[in-house]
Amino acid sequence: MSLLKGIAEAFSLILTLDPYLTQIVLLSLQVSGLAVFFAALAGVPLGTYLGLKPQERTRFAGKLLYTLMGMPPVVAGLLFYLLFSRMGPFGVLGLLYTPTAMILAQFVLAVPIIAALTMIGIRSRGKDVQETARTLGAGRLLTAWTVVRESRFAISGAIVTGLGRVIAEVGAVMIVGGNIEGHTRVMTTAIVLETGKGNFELAVGLGLVLLIISFVINSLLYSFQGGGKEIA
């Protein structure tokens, strides 16, 4: 099979909204989207908190976050496999090979990214925003919200970076999801499988969708960064 022919067939799969492909793409977006949503709920406050602390006092937390940022997805997958397997401490929950387990594993991958990038973003301006808000009589909650809102470009960038990372990872979702058709099969695991089976059209099609999604994500990121600079 030539690459060109594969790409042509891939496009026709995408354009005709092939049900198998569509279903996989939607599940990917759901799993990674939810993982990132919850990761943002945890990571943005954590990053904001650390970003407002003096840098020398958060050195250890910073190092830890950077280390976790580089955690290979398969390691996160292995960790959750051991936790959620029936023999593991949380085995009774029956979560192995479910989308929930995939969301949890990707959540763990995304939190350090979102927290670390938020921390960096907040550091550049957050302290000044915090003090200004306080001089104007804002309480703790309003101050925190103002700091987050003022760093919204950096934070949006952090969230989008997290999404880009988890939607493209295969190690964790393969191990904890099991690549079950119609249930836990996402774009990356499907690409691995279809390549192995020689269904290159589908693999290339999914690869193209992944590239398109990645393009959209990075365009957003680019505009956030541009937006940040424009006004800073």
Binding site: T132, G137, T146, R149, R152
Partner: peptide, 20 residues
């Protein structure tokens, strides 16, 4: 530092930070 008296005073900085 989070007390009502704060609301009756304010500080203007040399380099003002305006919200975006």
């Amino acid at each position: 530092t989070d007390i009502p008296a704060r609301r009756e005073m304010t500080l203007v900085f040399q380099k003002p930070l305006l919200f975006r």
